[in-house]
Computed example of a mutant assay.
Amino acid sequence: MNRFVLLICAIVFPLQMVKSADLDPLIAPHAAKHREEINKILLKAESAERLARDAYLVVLDSLERDLVAKRDPAGAALIDTERKGAAGISLGSGENDKLPKKAQGPRRTLVKELAKVQVDVVASARRPNAAYLAALNAIPGTAENPALAKQIVAEKKRLLLGVGTVVNFQTDMAGTLWRRVNNNKVLHVFTLDKKWEGSDWTAEAPDKIRFHWASGGGVTLTLAEGGNMIIGEDGKPNMILERGRAAKVAE
């Protein structure tokens, strides 16, 4: 089953993917605790999303059987197409007027369930995020230790950009969700079957991802430092991470 994710809000901070060994000993234990708590939230959200999508697929299967029994191959084909694309449905997905009416209501229900998961993640993440920020602010000795102060500033910046970071396109990208910078109403899901808005994508390097258009050609984008933003070929921010993928999620 594909795993999905969502969410960006200034009050919701990201799961830190920086290795504890790379952090100052004064920061590392706080980062590890925060990482563990946020990871639990991500896993819970993924489970809720998976259940919602499974329920929608059950409805589609039932509708398809009914349409086949009624000798409506065109309607059954529409349901089959919807099933194949169901993994990519997100909060930004609009109506699908081509669907039989009996499927339109369940689709809206799925989107509402995904929205509820987002709200729950926001609420659940506030407490560990605030605790980690407070812990960073309470670390002593920053005036005498520029390297420590720099790491604290970097951690705070990372906290402002989303939940979960992507440090390697080749291992971390599948199952994440991003929001377009030039249109914050548009969400893009990177599914586990390497699909993105109907097109294919390939992680060519840890920091390079290639989109292959169905019509031919494509574009290569770059992962920004911090793992929360994708940079376009023009050098400008293209997408911001909504929510990464839980580190402990099972393949």
Rank of each mutant, 00 (worst) to 15 (best):
N2E: 08
R3D: 12
F4C: 00
L6C: 09
L6Y: 11
L7S: 04
L7Q: 06
A10K: 14
V12F: 01
F13C: 11
P14N: 12
Q16L: 10
M17F: 09
S20Q: 09
S20K: 13
D24I: 01
L26M: 15
L26F: 14
L26N: 07
I27T: 04
P29T: 07
A31I: 03
A31T: 10
A32L: 13
H34A: 00
E37N: 09
E37S: 13
L42A: 01
K44C: 05
R50E: 11
R50C: 02
A52T: 06
R53Q: 09
A55M: 06
Y56G: 05
V58N: 15
L60S: 09
D61E: 15
L63F: 07
L63P: 07
E64N: 07
D72Q: 10
P73K: 01
A74N: 15
L78H: 14
L78Q: 13
I79H: 01
I79W: 02
D80H: 11
E82D: 09
R83H: 08
G85M: 14
G85Q: 15
A86I: 00
A87V: 14
G88A: 03
L91C: 08
G92P: 07
S93N: 14
D97C: 01
D97K: 15
D97M: 07
P100C: 05
A103E: 00
G105N: 14
L110I: 15
E113S: 15
K116C: 00
Q118G: 07
V121L: 00
V122W: 11
R126P: 01
N129H: 08
A130H: 03
A130N: 09
A131N: 14
Y132P: 03
Y132C: 00
A134F: 12
A134P: 07
N137F: 13
G141V: 02
N145P: 06
Q151C: 01
V153H: 09
V153C: 05
E155Y: 07
E155K: 01
K156A: 06
K156P: 08
K157C: 05
R158F: 03
L161R: 12
L161H: 13
V163H: 00
G164N: 01
V166S: 00
V167S: 07
T171P: 05
M173N: 02
M173S: 11
M173I: 13
A174L: 00
G175I: 02
W178F: 06
R179M: 11
R179E: 10
V181A: 04
V181Y: 03
N182S: 13
N183P: 06
N184G: 08
V186D: 12
L187W: 06
T191F: 02
D193K: 10
D193P: 08
K195D: 07
W196L: 06
E197F: 14
D200R: 15
D200S: 15
E204N: 07
E204C: 01
A205T: 10
D207K: 04
D207N: 12
K208I: 10
R210N: 12
H212M: 11
W213A: 07
A214Y: 12
S215M: 11
S215L: 11
L221P: 04
T222M: 04
L223Q: 02
A224H: 08
E225L: 07
G227M: 03
G235C: 02
N238I: 09
M239P: 03
L241E: 00
L241M: 03
L241W: 04
L241H: 04
E242R: 10
R243Y: 04
R245K: 05
R245M: 02
A247C: 02
K248R: 12
K248C: 02
A250T: 13
